[in-house]
């Protein structure tokens, strides 16, 4: 574990060092790329919680990513037009304040995750993969035809939302907000691993029968993990929407679920910083290969194949060696 901690530190150092370098060399776009990597990393950390520790392969995390995005889009668009959002008897003012948007995004994701999780966790294995996908697809088709918020065109928010005391339009300041959130989320997950909850979750993955015999209901542990995971991914969705100043149904598409899963696996499943290195590599590949050829997806495909076939445990596994058993 020692070596992995060192690698994690180096990774995070790289992630924060790169945009700082970009700022001094006046390359603001590289800061944007690093911000995107950090946001996707947060989404991946959320997914990793259920995939890695819980052994629950969710192919529907785009649901939460999109819900977070739309929470931001809807609140900000109402703030932009000064028209309150009317939900039956409830009248809510729009907001352009990031902390409020994050809370709403996480709250909405938590409720959705509770419902989706409660229904999906009745199944397991491939059935679980597919039922989570089904929920994602429902959101996707719903938002495409939901004309009140732009349908397939999505929603553009012209100004980035605000954070008290900071200028969020300055790329490096926005990056720092995202990076701090990433650290918080990573810290939370690290604590969770060592906690009795984390151990129970691990145990439930390995043998739900054995957990039952010690009096823990695996369903409740897994549901709690699913909700936490959905909240983290929802937060990432809100940040992603803020980065682009735009949300659209494509945030709900199964390709997004797939992409998040791909870089979690690429980085290393169940490794604390697996999603971080996965997201970073994904962005670098997209940027570098994208410039090489019109057919860059072919190269990306071969590279992913090589990783699956020859780098078991992902990049972190390759660097840090096989994971020791959890104590």
């Amino acid at each position: 574990m020692k070596r992995e901690s060192l690698i994690n530190l180096i990774l995070l150092g790289l992630l924060v060092g790169f945009p700082v370098w970009a700022m001094f060399s006046d390359e603001p776009f590289f800061i944007t790329l690093a911000t995107k990597a950090a946001i996707l990393a947060i989404a991946g950390v959320g997914l990793n919680l259920v995939i890695g520790q819980g052994g629950l392969v969710s192919f529907g995390h785009a649901s939460f990513f999109g819900l977070g995005g739309y929470s931001m889009g809807i609140l900000a668009s109402h703030a932009q037009t000064y028209e309150p959002l009317v939900l039956g008897p409830l009248v809510i003012d729009g907001s352009q304040s990031m902390p409020i948007i994050w809370l709403v995004a996480m709250g909405v994701s938590a409720v959705a995750a509770l419902l989706i999780g409660a229904l999906s966790l009745r199944t397991s294995g491939v059935y679980f993969i597919m039922i989570t996908l089904a929920f994602g697809q429902m959101f996707y088709y719903f938002t495409i035809s939901w004309s009140a918020y732009g349908g397939e065109d999505g929603l553009s928010i012209y100004v980035r939302n605000t954070f008290p005391g900071l200028n969020t339009l300055d790329p490096i300041q926005f990056f720092m907000i995202v990076f701090v959130l990433l650290l918080l989320v990573l810290g939370f997950c690290a604590r969770l691993r060592g906690s009795s909850f984390g151990l129970a979750l691990n145990a439930a993955r390995q043998s739900s029968e054995r957990v039952k015999t010690v009096g823990i209901e695996p369903f409740r542990i897994q549901l709690a993990a699913f909700v936490l995971s959905g909240m983290i991914t929802g937060l990432a969705g809100a940040l992603f929407a803020d980065l682009n100043r735009f949300v659209s149904p494509s945030m709900f598409s199964w390709q997004i679920s797939g992409e998040i899963m791909v870089f979690v696996i690429m980085g290393g499943v169940a490794r604390l910083c697996g999603p971080v290195v996965g997201a970073m590599l994904f962005i670098v590949l997209e940027h570098v290969l994208g410039g090489l050829s019109e057919f860059w997806h072919i190269y990306l495909g071969f590279l992913l194949l090589l990783i699956v076939l020859f780098a078991r445990g992902g990049i972190v596994g390759l660097l840090a060696g096989r994971e020791k058993a959890h104590e």
């Binding site: 776009f29 944007t32 790329l33 995107k36 999505g154 992603f240 682009n244 100043r245 735009f246 659209s248 494509s250 945030m251």
Partner: peptide, 9 residues
């Protein structure tokens, strides 16, 4: 759309 926004940036 997300890629388009990123490219515009």
């Amino acid at each position: 759309p997300e890629i388009a926004v990123q490219l515009a940036d």
